[in-house]
């Protein structure tokens, strides 16, 4: 199975590179990057002291009164990231970043203002670059439906572009992402009067993709 994936990726890449190479090599002021990867972080365990505690379960004042204690753990989620920017100078490309990020069991769709730029003004085969973005993510598919609202995000990152020499390139990047969100849970209004969860996700991301 894995081999097919690799073959598919290989041919896919070759085709797109071949296509890019046949184009007229006039450097465009516009740069688009498409990247995909993972973002990793940790969650805290449930606090059994917060509510009455019975064995491995805590008693919650809601509909499903008992809930098992959830341990701390690592969480890895998918991230798809696109950037469309205008090159003011090679060191400063301003634009918009869009994508899909998965945190635990909830997806978010970030819309952020972003800047990218080449570091050290070096435009050789290997060009390191930085990226910085800040914006808002709207809640995507998640278990809480409309109860979950997105929030502010910011994300710094560093990457390496392997230039093809015609304005296209292969990218790898890594960085940090902070995403806020808020869940206003629906409550029965009798036993539970309100329940609000303010979330802030902190993740490391590792992505790879293309630039053209």
């Amino acid at each position: 199975m894995k081999i097919f994936t690799h073959l598919f990726l290989f041919f896919g890449l070759s085709v797109s590179f071949a296509h890019a190479q046949t184009e007229q090599t006039k450097p465009s002021r516009w740069r688009t990057t498409v990247q995909m990867g993972i973002q990793a972080g940790r969650v805290r365990p449930d606090q059994p002291t917060a509510y009455p505690y019975y064995g491995d379960y805590i008693y919650l004042p809601n509909y499903y009164n008992y809930s098992s204690i959830r341990p701390a753990g690592n969480r890895i989620g998918l991230t798809i990231h696109t950037f469309i920017g205008y090159t003011l100078r090679p060191q400063l490309i301003t634009g918009l970043a869009l994508g899909v990020d998965y945190y635990n069991n909830s997806a978010f769709l970030p819309i952020a203002a972003a800047i990218q730029g080449d570091l050290f003004g070096r435009t050789k085969r290997l060009t390191p670059f930085y990226s910085l973005e800040s914006g808002y993510a709207i809640a995507g598919p998640n278990p809480h439906d409309n109860e979950l609202k997105g929030g502010w995000l910011w994300s710094p990152g560093l990457g390496l572009r392997i230039n093809k020499g015609n304005g296209t390139g292969f990218l790898i990047s890594a960085g940090y992402k902070h995403q806020e969100a808020r869940q206003v849970a629906s409550v029965d209004g009798v036993q539970v009067l309100s329940q609000i969860e303010n979330r802030s996700y902190n993740r490391l991301f590792f992505r790879m993709g293309f630039s053209f």
């Binding site: 990793a40 972080g41 004042p61 809601n62 945190y103 036993q191 539970v192 979330r199």
Partner: peptide
């Protein structure tokens, strides 16, 4: 600092 920080505020009887 890659651990999520979440706080749930619940008002209940």
């Amino acid at each position: 600092s890659c651990t999520d920080n979440c706080e749930q505020t619940r008002t209940y009887r």
